[in-house]
Design a protein around this nucleic acid. Sequence first.
DNA 1: CTGTTAGCGCGTTCAT
DNA 2: ATGAACGCGCTAACAG
Lengths: 349, 349
Amino acid sequence: MSAPASKSPATLHDVAREAGVSLATASRSLNGSARKVNEAYRQRVVEAAQRLGYTTNLFAQAVAKGSTTTVALLVADIADPYFSSIAAGVIDAASEEGLVVTIAVTGRNAQRELDTVRALRGQRPRVLILAGSRTTGSAFEEHLRAELSSFEDTGGKVAFISQDAAPFATVLLDNRGGAHDLAVSLAGLGYRDFAVIAGPSEIRTSEERLDGFTAGLAEHGISLPPERVVHADFTRDGGYRGTQELLASGAHMDLVFAANDVMAVGVVSALRDAGIAPGEGIGVAGYDDIPTVRDITPALTTVRIPLEDVGRRALQLATGSAYDGGADSGAGPTPITTETIIRGSTPRR
Amino acid sequence: MSAPASKSPATLHDVAREAGVSLATASRSLNGSARKVNEAYRQRVVEAAQRLGYTTNLFAQAVAKGSTTTVALLVADIADPYFSSIAAGVIDAASEEGLVVTIAVTGRNAQRELDTVRALRGQRPRVLILAGSRTTGSAFEEHLRAELSSFEDTGGKVAFISQDAAPFATVLLDNRGGAHDLAVSLAGLGYRDFAVIAGPSEIRTSEERLDGFTAGLAEHGISLPPERVVHADFTRDGGYRGTQELLASGAHMDLVFAANDVMAVGVVSALRDAGIAPGEGIGVAGYDDIPTVRDITPALTTVRIPLEDVGRRALQLATGSAYDGGADSGAGPTPITTETIIRGSTPRR
DNA sequence: CTGTTAGCGCGTTCAT
DNA sequence: ATGAACGCGCTAACAG
């Protein structure tokens, strides 16, 4: 019932007229970079703009300037704490630079990821950040790289999070090293019979963690029999079901390592539901240190990743605003410090 | 070191030339609404576009058409499961309609919220969704309304989540009713000495829940003494500290209700750290039913809100694509069904 | 320092 | 059905 009269927003033209100056002057006083405009005029323009409720049309500005203030972020699942924490970092860093971030989700589907990247290019974002769990081996992989290369050729900047994806900038997470150290720590605590619940085998992050973990155990002369490694969805429910599978197989184990915290949470619940006290009967460890793992019982042993920082770094890496002292900053991968955190879920045996 | 030659992306013009047709024909074959173009031509254009790696410049398109394909979403904190779940719903529904969503965070700061809305208007979004916890009483409130009204006057659509904010469209969450029912259920379980850890008193969502809870108790002849109500940050740590405060006051209580689940998680941890078994010594209840509360120990009693649906509904409400059969759908508030979920944290006494 | 003019990439009349 | 020309809101290069 309200007036659908829908006037269009005030334009710079309107403001100029209202202030009695030229379009150029209005533009300069409102957005211009090198400000060289009479203060009196500037005042009038600003006031006129205010009076009219004018806001710069970013789209038009982008078209005219040929560059946008948009950052596109691609995640597998925004409701997953891992990604939402990273997103928080990206958004924070972006807003500091006056950039707006648009988020798209891929649902861990390679085809969809490719489509999304293509669609996103229509936005002509200044930078494109891919935080999705890189998958491996698919034909999409090379299509994606082609798409991204072409994106960079036309002035865009891309940043990956997690796996090195040369020649693109990368915030490198040392999944292998982190999992390796975790394994060493756990072995040091006295654990001997390990089992791993990994994500789908196409997910690189998961595979790297599995590799590193295996390597770490090997250093202690502990081997990880294939039947003690199960693959499941990279989600809480995946962890839950993986545990059930492990339990059903009758495997003997004193510690379960889940490839990420979200899965580990599922592991803990599954153990408990099966009548096994997590941390007492069987130790549990995860990876990421998402906020909630401090609050489950027992608190989860994990490998800490400064998720928000990772997001922030990714953006800075792409925009070139990183504090990196590196000689060639922006080109090489930026390593992130990771740390094993022992909590109640893995008491000394 | 790589070629910074940075050619600009292919334009529609390039495609037209490559295909040997006019700009208009190219436009019609690629984006046109009413398609009335010779199939042979269309083919050639599409192929040319593919060959050149052309992607429609959404900004330019927006400028030309005067309308965008952007949805702006405002949340208090994207890393908070409450908001990230809602965001997931919004993004999902948006992508179904070919809309891109940009997310901005306010950090529960009214001034910043206002600034952000203003900045976001520059994007000329089709719809603006405010999921942030509405604050009350501040002068910003009316500035915000003015800003939003003006946004709607110029063709935008705004949708609120949670509190009714007439005349704007709203996905109404019945905080009062939900908390009321929760209180009734808890009283029915035998609890008598209640305490509440609410959020900051300016946050409406928190106040409504407190109100409803108090009313529900009253129906059972139970009163909630003022000293049993503490206010704290609307975060996990807020819940933790609020609990410590409550404990320090020596208050006698058999149940703690936290105004949201994130806080309740903090409550559970604080109790445990204080040597009190949550669920045995003192019952704990929250609100929202965020994913993790199933996995903490004991599992948390709470009021379930279908968060993703809420996000989806908000978008549909704003774009008018809701399935609502309502006569005046789009104008009135859309109620969401909420439900009390009793779990291990509140055993019968 | 200011105003005029010509684009930016695209959609859309208007003729043809 | 197709193409030429104009306009969207804004910036940038050009004169004054």
